[in-house]
Design a protein around this nucleic acid. Structure first.
Length: 423
DNA sequence: TGGGGTTAT
DNA sequence: ATAACCC
């Protein structure tokens, strides 16, 4: 047994943030190695969602329209990335690999993971208890000098060695490159991981924390401060991190509520006590499609029927049973394309839940019926309508009762890579 | 601007 | 059910 760090003293946490380089493009280059040295973009609808570094050299940016990207770079090769299955599968392989080192792995999107490596660092500290040579891996933020008598510095340096091992394992086993950041909390590890950009890593020592957080030119670059909060802060005259640090907390609490105000003001000082929460298996499975126009009940039904088979396949491979189903729509609006999403959800009838695991039972038709009922709760089908998105989501996943758990559920690993999906 | 995800209220 | 956040 190990004495936990928290029980010992106030030794700092050591957190690694691992961020794969242009993830979708890398996966596509593995699937088709001929694309390796060519400018490559991954397209969803009219958008190049990401591109490799060859393309970036030629002026292509993330989330650029296909039109602009082709103008900038006529040689650009585009592959369709609307089906996320290959990316999702590779993504879980990365998370599982990190899980071999340590149980505390938290996913953020498909291409980022936080790992709490405090315990691994402690173990190495105790092993090499003599003063064997400690050498940093990768960059040190600000080029700050390391003080070998400072145990916090030593812990972070050991953290940088572990991060290097993570990146080497991810490259050796999966062929993927990425960046890493090592620091004393999630916020800082994430911010510092981006300082040297493809395929490099950086460690932050506490003395440079303020330099890092103040280097952010706009508050929306602070993870946790999003679009809405930024807008409201701007009306208060808060434009950068220093403004937020100095802003009166009482006024901030009145504008944003105590919880948000206190959290983001701590973030502005680089403070973040949120734990690395092991992600485990997914909480939901969803599949969506966007389009120019969908305006009849028949079309809606067809779209739903397209979405369902892949979703059911993913759920089947997961082995758990969903107890809730949700339909989300987006109605056309010339002003603001976000925000006008609505959804309706309902419990899945028990007799249908039973049939989820089984082969060849037709669960599709009754589900379509349920989803069309949910649709009619949102849209009066006697009036004209204009949808631009449909999404189906299964959630409230529960393990099968052990009595009737088949081979699928029994042999699946904890972090099962869900798969199937797409259009 | 896509096609996903999460947690808080 | 929505709103906020993340990629």
């Amino acid at each position: 047994h190990s004495k936990s760090v928290s029980a010992r003293s106030a030794a700092c946490r050591v957190i690694a943030h691992v961020d794969l380089d242009c993830f979708y493009a890398q996966v596509e280059m593995i699937r088709n190695p001929e694309l390796r040295d060519k400018p490559l973009g991954v397209q969803q609808k009219y958008i190049v969602v990401t591109c490799n570094y060859e393309a970036r050299k030629l002026g292509v940016k993330k989330l650029m329209s296909v039109k602009d990207a082709r103008e900038k770079c006529p040689q650009l090769i585009l592959v369709n990335g609307e089906d996320l299955t290959p990316y999702r599968e590779m993504s879980y392989k990365v998370t599982e690999l990190l899980g071999e080192f340590c149980p505390l792995v938290e996913r953020l999107g498909f291409d980022e993971n936080f790992v709490d490596i405090t315990e691994i660092v402690e173990k190495r500290l105790n092993q090499q208890s003599g003063c064997s040579r400690v050498c940093v891996s990768g960059h040190v933020y600000n080029n700050q000098a390391i003080n070998l008598h400072d145990t916090t510095h030593i812990r972070l340096v050991i953290g940088s060695q572990i991060a290097e091992e993570f990146r080497e394992a991810i490259y050796a086993r999966l062929g993927l490159t990425g960046c890493a950041g090592v620091a004393s909390n999630k916020l800082l590890s994430k911010l510092v991981s981006g300082t040297f950009k493809p395929n490099q890593q950086t460690v932050l020592l506490p003395e440079s924390c303020q330099d890092l957080i103040r280097s952010l030119d706009h508050i929306q670059k602070v993870p946790g401060i999003g679009y809405k909060t930024t807008k409201r802060l701007e009306t208060l005259g808060v434009r950068n991190v220093c403004d937020l640090q100095a802003f009166p907390s009482t006024v901030l609490e009145k504008e944003l509520g105590v919880s948000v105000a206190q959290r983001i003001q701590k973030l502005s000082y680089g403070e973040d006590d949120s734990p690395v929460t092991p992600t485990g298996p997914p909480q939901s499975f969803s599949d969506e499609d966007s389009f120019k126009k969908c305006s009849s009940e028949v079309e809606v039904k067809e779209k739903i029927e397209e979405l369902l088979p892949n979703l059911l396949d993913r759920i089947h491979k997961d082995g758990r049973q969903p107890h809730t189903v949700r339909l989300t729509i987006r109605q056309f609006s010339s002003t603001d394309r976000w925000f006008n999403r609505e959804s309706r959800q309902c419990p899945i009838p028990p007799h249908l839940i039973q049939k989820f695991g089984k082969e060849s039972s037709n669960v599709i038709s009754p589900l379509v019926d349920i989803l069309m009922k949910l649709f009619r709760k949102m849209i009066d089908v006697d009036l004209p309508f204009h949808l631009t998105l449909l999404s189906v989501c299964f959630s409230n996943l529960k393990d099968l009762p052990s009595s009737k758990r088949g081979s699928i559920g029994f042999y699946l690993k904890q972090m099962s890579p869900p798969s199937g999906s797409g259009k």
